[in-house]
Amino acid sequence: MKKWSVLCLMGTALVLISWGFKGHRAVATIAQKHLTSNTAYVVSAYLKGESMSDVATWADENRNPKTAPWHFLNLPLGLTHDAFVKAVTESDNNVYTAILKTEAQLKDQSLDADQKNEALKYLIHLVGDAHQPMHVSRKEDKGGNTIQLRFDNKGTNLHSLWDSKLIDHENLNEVDIAKNYDTATPAQIKQWQADSPMEWIWESYQVSSELYAQVKPGQDIDEAYYQKYIPVIRKRVDQAGIRLAGELNRLFNSAKAPAVSVAAVPAAIPATTPAVVIAVKLEDTKNAIGKTVSTQGKVYSTKDIKSMVLVNLGAAYPNQLLTVALKGKAKTLQLEGKTITVEGEVVDYQGKPEIVVTDPAKIKF
């Protein structure tokens, strides 16, 4: 059976860095916003406290010859959808099969936390790769890398143009990129998360096919080109983030987080079982990860993100000493400006202590 070949030369693979630094971090940031509470905790545990955006480019920085082909897929142009699916199904060691492999690893109960940490970092990155059109493109021009162009009075190539140059032209910082790109409606979120990875790369293939037809070597990319395609880039980054969240929610929404090691717990916090409630000062909750505690603090700000209400104690976001995530019946509590006592297990969420509360009785004021 014939298999479509993929680029496997290490020197080629090293330049295939999809979406660049800003784009990959935007994908991860958007995904983070759409995780369920339990998924967010499991992800944080497997990433050992690092944020998804912090590890979004790890797979590019980790120069591994064995996984270099995972970032892309090369196929001839002109395939119908059926022919495309057949070709992808017959291929291996590429972005599509790597996504399936890493998801399988994250489901594998025999793998340890370190192995799942690596698989998760790859998955976060590869979903972004799958949505960069020039990562599903032709072998003969190395994914557009040999098609030289000019943009913003500088030399570039078709691949780099779509990796980062068009995004950089917007002159937005990372925070604004994630905010401005994350515009999916509830209907779009539902549809995008229902699509399979095969459809993600089919979409990229369709866009890259159009891009090849739109440029000639040496062409000066003008403002009209930018205005035409920046909405496409915004959509692809948003789709990648929304779909990454969907995949992670399916993997981890009902999963139990691995044990998180607790370092430097103060002597005032005894090493007891989580069933025992320990009274701690608000500022010490950061040292009580994995413990069930009771603590008191003033509510400085709250934010309703639909799936939960985030309550910031000790200071307003992002300087809070503890975040309380209200879910279920607890979401109805009105806590703004009040001093409350909260009871629950402390978890690490992106380097900050957090307690999830579903029972209103766990909060007193």
Rank of each mutant, 00 (worst) to 15 (best):
Q188E: 14
A279L: 08
S204R: 02
T295V: 07
A263I: 14
L282E: 02
A259E: 15
N287Q: 14
A257F: 09
S294W: 05
V175D: 05
K286R: 14
S254P: 08
A187C: 08
Y225H: 12
Q193S: 05
S196W: 07
A187P: 03
P258E: 13
K298T: 12
V293Q: 05
T185H: 02
K303M: 09
P274M: 12
V277C: 07
S254N: 15
P274I: 11
T185N: 04
K235L: 10
K303E: 12
A213M: 14
D176A: 12
Y229Q: 00
V293G: 02
L244Q: 02
I167H: 06
N180R: 15
Y205F: 11
N171L: 08
G297Q: 01
L251V: 13
W192Q: 03
V293P: 00
I167Y: 05
K303H: 07
A178E: 02
N171M: 08
A288D: 01
Q188G: 01
R250Y: 12
I289V: 15
I167R: 03
D304N: 14
K190F: 10
A264C: 14
K286L: 06
G290K: 06
G241R: 03
V299R: 01
P270L: 08
R243M: 08
A187I: 12
L248W: 09
K281V: 04
V299F: 05
A257E: 14
K190D: 13
L282I: 01
W200K: 06
D182R: 03
Q206R: 11
Y225R: 07
I177M: 14
Y226R: 11
Q219P: 02
G218V: 03
N249I: 13
P197Y: 02
Y300C: 10
Q296G: 07
L248S: 07
V237E: 02
P231Y: 05
K216E: 13
T295E: 00
I289W: 03
H169D: 10
Q239P: 00
K179I: 07
Y229G: 04
A288R: 05
V237A: 01
L166H: 06
Y229V: 01
Y181G: 01
V237H: 04
N173C: 12
Q227S: 07
T302W: 04
D176C: 06
A268I: 09
V237N: 00
Y205E: 05
K228P: 06
V277G: 06
G218Q: 05
T185Y: 03
K303N: 11
I233W: 01
D238H: 08
K303P: 04
A224W: 03
K179W: 09
A194V: 04
A245G: 07
N173L: 10
D284C: 03
W192F: 06
Q227L: 10
A255I: 15
N173S: 12
A194I: 00
D284L: 02
S204V: 04
D168Q: 12
D284W: 00
I233R: 05
R234T: 09
A255N: 14
A257W: 10
T295H: 00
N287V: 01
E283M: 06
P274A: 15
E210N: 11
I201Q: 01
I269Q: 02
V232A: 01
W192K: 03
L166C: 10
A184K: 01
N173W: 10
S208D: 05
A178R: 00
Q239Y: 13
